[in-house]
Amino acid sequence: MKAIEFENVTFRYEEDSPFVIQKLNFSVEEGEFVAVLGHNGSGKSTLARLSNGLLVPDAGAVRVFGVTLSDETMFEARKNVGVVFQNPDNQTVATIVEDDVAFGAENVGLPREEIGKRIDFALRAVGMQDYRNATVARLSGGQKQRIAIAGVLALKPRVVILDESTAMLDPRGRREIVDVVTRLNKEEGITVVLITHFMEEALLADRAVVMNRGEIVMQGKPAEIFERQEELLTYNLALPRIGVICNSLRAAGMPVENTLDAEVLAEEIAKCV
């Protein structure tokens, strides 16, 4: 089943401003892990806000599990599609971790005992069960984003969209988030859409989608996408350092396979010598 489906979606922020998204067709299967790549201003963030009705398309339709988004269906859709945003400081409403995680579950009117269970589940899923009574302000960036994910998970969504949620984190925080969503996808069967400008984060996805000027310009297995380096550069996407090394070695005639995994590359080099 299609978890999210965009059909000929067109969108712009204001009447006379340029279109951010044009006649976009895009879908995500249930259980899939999709990475959406694109430089700043490619329209990839607009995609997230259209998926849960925070923005409404000017033309075309967005469907969530087969139901077209409208004012009537929005509330149900938001229970199914959780979105985590960019800034770790701007997403928590409460001072204490558990109060914040409870927020979504309170909004949909769950009974007290159920909310308690949801908090347990959500904090465990992001590996923050020991921080239940901690003060949000004292956590690291990566931990804050994990709490933001937990806050979304408390609604038991079937899809989680991360809208550049790693952009403001340090390398360690970024790794934490990628680990968490990979686990959610593999173990909980949650559909994941990871919107990012770091290619190495897309490595573990089932499918990578490259956006440029509101259109999908490349799509396929991450490893295949990363081989097309020249094409990526035209969309202002820089290959991670390891890709650069691979390509330079290959250009010099060394028969190494393209990879973004350091261990694999070491193995490849060792084989040649």
Binding site: R241, I242, I245, A262, E263, A266, E267, I269, A270, V273
Partner: peptide, 15 residues
């Protein structure tokens, strides 16, 4: 850095 990771991984393989 990535280069240090690669050097370590290579050293393990005798390079």
């Amino acid at each position: 850095p990535l280069t240090a990771k690669l050097c370590t991984a290579l050293a393990k393989r005798g390079v």
